[in-house]
Design a protein around this nucleic acid. Structure first.
Lengths: 107, 107
DNA sequence: AGGTCGAAGTATACAATGTATACTATGCGT
DNA sequence: ACGCATAGTATACATTGTATACTTCGACCT
């Protein structure tokens, strides 16, 4: 099973959540809104590329004319089955580690 | 708030859990048993040192004669308040990201 | 008293992941 | 035709992850 880092996991989960509009900028907006940190475009694309080379996500070039203001054609992101597996495993390990620590961590 | 990596978080949580006997080898045993990977001593100590320089854990040298078979005096590991805070924040972000993805990740 | 064994920790090197800055390409509005 | 905004690419460097090899020193043996 592929090892993934902290940010890679967050990105993977964020992509998984954008089922209706799985584009990089949506993912980025979600990350900035929910992870409590800024995410530059460079950081995100680098990570998307790494997830791709690990086979956890794929993309297709958006065939339609979705880009309203020009630029490169947009990538439509797709989480592979391996990606789903990796996310599930990471989650399971983390939940195991969190288990029972509520009283210690919260007041 | 200190940024911590994936393994740093696991180590921090593992230390937090060894309230009765917070020693490196206990932490290591817990990690190997629950994180699904091998953890060499070098990897663990390096990470403990990094957590220390971030102020998330501290240690005292075990004053007693606990080491039954010799060697360097043992470190008794202590998670600082900052460490607890960092762990809580990481957990909160992750739980937010996991939220609602159960159906997608599990069958 | 000296030698070996195992436990605990240290040092060092390198690989993988995280993150920013600067650059290219292209549609739209003027 | 020109510039602005959007989407993605390239490159460089910092931080984190991981292994291997080395030092220490008590207990045990002989």
């Amino acid at each position: 099973m592929a090892k993934i880092g902290e940010f890679e996991l967050l990105v993977l989960l964020a992509v998984l959540r954008q089922s209706d509009a799985p584009y990089a900028n949506r993912v980025r907006a979600y990350l900035e809104a929910n992870a409590g940190r800024t995410v530059t475009r460079g950081a995100l694309y680098r990570t998307l590329d790494r997830l791709t080379s690990k086979g956890l996500i794929e993309w297709e070039l958006e065939p339609s004319e979705t880009p309203e203001r020009g630029g490169h054609p947009m990538r439509r992101l797709i989480v592979t089955d391996e990606g789903r597996d990796a996310a599930r495993e990471s989650r399971d390990v983390l939940l195991t580690f969190f288990e029972g620590l509520g009283p210690v961590l919260d007041g």
